[in-house]
Amino acid sequence: MNTSVIVFPGSNCDLDVVHAISSALGTQADLVWHDDNELPQGTELVVLPGGFSYGDYLRCGAMAAKSPIIRAVIEHAGSGLPVLGICNGFQVLTETGLLPGALLANRTLSFICDFCHVRVERNDTPFTSLYRKGQVLRIPIAHYEGMYFLPGDELAKIETANRIVFRYCSPEGEVDDSFSPNGALNCIAGITNEAGNVLGMMPHPERASESILGSVDGLPLWQSLSRWLEGRNRS
């Protein structure tokens, strides 16, 4: 799997993603500087990692969304290849317009770092094919701005279009606002674009990819992507 992990000034989960992919799949990922205009030849997966791009000043992800590399990321997404935005990367994706909505301050008005539970709502995406639908994942979050927001009518539209991939839930899989750590509308923890090849998620799969870190529930995400890309290359 040829992966490009975009590094913005202030990204801090870039090396974690590289490490997770390498320990999960045994493949190396490239770090790509935000100032570059092109993705490395042959890039299959683009990851926008977590962190505090541009210090999270102004609005999380707003300045990163104006980086030169973003044009290439948008083109990449347009070609049908997968783009994954994790945490700050999700915020960048909403700011670029590749995904709808915005991530607002947690309703607790505090940074939250903790394991949480999310339910897999779709397993027909390149990112989730190796999960069961309804499977509950134990996976960390770490953010101040993670409350997913979209105005009511548009929210209804993405619900109808089945664009929600992960929702916060109880350890048993019950979805309810009381299990949402940040107050996200409809307990949304991750969504895709219409085509299903761009995923934004607040939880960190790279932090749940090794048993020594307390969870391997993020592993199938990398494995799903690798399998999906192999299938695509064969056909």
Partner: peptide, 14 residues
Amino acid sequence: IYKQYDYMVQTGTV
């Protein structure tokens, strides 16, 4: 207190 700190970044916290 400590849930306000990102104690997991760098994926080394065992």
